[in-house]
């Protein structure tokens, strides 16, 4: 029996991280923004059946980017975790932090022990009754958890999109402004994204129980048009730089 070649652990980890990053970079991005009405989740997704954004529990939503089968498996595991916890204890005891920690455990375990890391990034968002009570957790392929505030960007080209969101975000926007901001940040200066290219959902702050609600194409078009009209009327308020006016 031949001995395998020695590979330094640093190299193994680096190779896995590169592999996962490349897989994630190929996919389209997802943005979550804290709005006055709730947490807006907006993904670039031309499919209207294969979802990137989904409901986990009363006030908790899920977003996934990267390899569809892998993040969908994580989504279902999250729904099961939340429903079992709510059944065993109470609906109030289901929280985003514990779910994010569970995801981190699994992603970390797979990253260090399996041949192939998961090529996914995951978002776990929980809406509070006030914007200050919102929680947004961003999980990386290796199990790293980032506690985000105001907004989060996941997936390919995340840095450029983050910079665009950061440049145009001013305080806590209303839902329509937030949506226009997310759409233009996802599109970048050279493209425009319409309702058909976007998957949009909101965790509604004021709902009594199940807060997750999808916005259909008609609603998204209407809001994008309304925000466009508002920014045309007052260009210096809604588009502080040339980049976000596309």
């Amino acid at each position: 029996m031949s001995m395998p070649f020695y590979v330094a652990p640093e190299q193994v980890m680096k190779d896995r991280a590169d592999y996962a990053r490349k897989g994630i970079a190929r996919g389209r991005a997802l943005v979550a923004i804290q709005c006055a009405e709730g947490i807006l989740l907006c993904a670039e997704n031309p499919s209207s059946t294969l979802r990137k954004i989904a409901e986990i529990y009363d006030r908790i939503a899920f977003g996934g980017v990267g390899k569809y089968n892998e993040f969908d498996q994580m989504r279902i595991a999250g729904v099961r975790h939340a429903d079992l916890k709510g059944y065993s204890f109470s609906r109030e005891d289901v929280d985003a932090r514990s779910l994010a920690n569970q995801y981190a455990q699994i992603l970390g375990q797979i990253f260090t022990h399996e041949m192939k890391p998961m090529e996914v990034e995951i978002l776990v968002a929980e809406v509070g009754t006030e914007p200050a009570g919102d929680q947004i957790f961003h999980l990386l392929y290796d199990g790293t958890v980032i506690d985000e505030s105001a907004y989060a960007v996941l997936g390919g080209d995340a840095e450029a999109i983050s910079a665009r969101v950061d440049a145009s975000l001013d305080g806590t926007p209303d839902l329509t402004t937030g949506l226009a901001l997310a759409a233009s940040a996802l599109a970048g200066p050279e493209r425009t994204l319409g309702a058909a290219d976007l998957e949009v959902a909101v965790l509604d702050r004021m709902s009594v129980r199940r807060c997750f609600r999808r916005l259909d194409d008609a609603d998204v078009s209407e809001r994008l048009a309304a925000a466009g009209a508002a920014s045309a009327a007052a260009p210096d308020v809604a588009s502080p730089d040339a980049e976000s006016s596309g």
């Binding site: 989904a54 409901e55 729904v79 429903d83 709510g86």
Partner: peptide, 10 residues
């Protein structure tokens, strides 16, 4: 109730 909600979410 949980079964219906669980099905819908999954």
């Amino acid at each position: 109730q949980l079964q219906l909600e669980h099905y819908e979410k999954v």
